[in-house]
Design a protein around this nucleic acid. Sequence first.
RNA 1: GGAGGAUUCGCAUAGCGGCCGAGUGCGCACGCUUGGAAAGCGUGUAUAGGGCAACCUAUCGAGGGUUCAAAUCCCUCAUCCUCCGCCA
Length: 421
Amino acid sequence: MIDLKTLRENPEAIRHSQKVRGEDVAVVDLLLKADEVSRQAISEFEKLRAEQNILSKAVGAAKGEEKAALLENAKELANRVKAADAKRGELETSARELLLRISNAIDLEAPVGGEEDFIVIEEIGKPRDFVGEGFEPKDHVEIGKILKAIDTERGAKVAGSRSYYLTGPGAMLEFALVNFAISSAVKAGFIPVIPPVLVNPAAMEGTGFLGQAAENVYHLEEDDVYLVGTSEVPLAAYHMDEIVENLPIRYAGYSSCFRREAGTYGKDTRGIIRVHQFDKVEMFSFIKPEDAKAEHLRLLEWEKDFLKAMEIPFRVIDVASGDLGASAVRKFDCEAWIPTQGAYREVTSTSNCTEFQARRLNIRYREEGATKPVATLNGTLVAVPRMIVAILENHQNKDGSVNVPMALRPFLGVDALVPTL
RNA sequence: GGAGGAUUCGCAUAGCGGCCGAGUGCGCACGCUUGGAAAGCGUGUAUAGGGCAACCUAUCGAGGGUUCAAAUCCCUCAUCCUCCGCCA
């Protein structure tokens, strides 16, 4: 949620933000009006309430006839207070609803436009020349089959489309990736966390996943809990309703992630690029707002380090305004080169959410006696299936074996994955 | 799933329907004292909204209700603890 005071002072900035995001601009002025009306109602209620408090005390002190007379007044006043309170409640609720519909005020440095309007910030590493090497690269499904590492057919049999088994070397690869990721994160000062993946509505709502993103979230109706699509949710909500100290606080969460992938029927139907369930190590920072931009670049740097360690060619893009989540003011994606698609595909992503999530979740820190909302940022360290895709495809050999990146070898215990009979 | 008990200011606790936004202890901050420290003494110590301010308003797990007035009475829910049952 955005800051109302800032909105009152500079509504134009929010109007502009809504516009470049391709979202409703009119809601800004509706909110301004609703805010004014509700504040008026609050002050009316408070005035009456103050009167009532005084009168009530008088009733308590009075005796006999005098008391009876005061009670008469007090009853009448109580009704007016009740009415004013109800009105206040209604107006506050409607103002809040409008407030929750407004996305975070975009970073003016973010490129303007839609999904296609990203800016490539840099390209790191060079795609391999498979033609020059004299063979046609196989896609990860095929290699996965040869290595007995990925089983999408049985995944579909048991769990439906977009499901898979990681077996043998595939499973070992996950453990190696996760162990490498966590140990790197710990070295960098992150606190490793295994969070709950089943969360209550407050956590889901507070992180902004019940808005436009709601259709991609699994909801268990009987118990009114949600399966998280990312550990960002439980990590952000971890400090809900708290005043935190010793910023920055950095967590590296390892969890399963669940996504309905509604409305993606035609896309990425082959393989494990887009799946309903996967494991991920996510970085999450709580930091002073003035340090958020610098932290965003640090998170990006850690993501780049990981991809470099995986020896995978990739590029970094600055995602355009229309393609940002509601909480993010700016987002950088790292896209790995996928040889069989001849394209860069998103493997990690980092967002600066400034104080947007913290305001909703009521997470603050102290500064000069006052409390202020913290800034929150998140970034993927490794999303396992997509990283496996990138590794298998980029490091494959003609015979279907796959070289293991140097950094992973200590964790995997082998230099190459080779087909077995 | 069943039966009890609990939830108050960072922690531990007190709290009669009006004198309770709330006492006490600990902790913390500042001051006095001291050569310095401890002890002792004193003062302060929740959050949020509104107002230039004095100040006002709200919040005693959450939400409803009764009442002129609710931390206190009633209802619903959540969480925690103990016991029983069941399962890991």
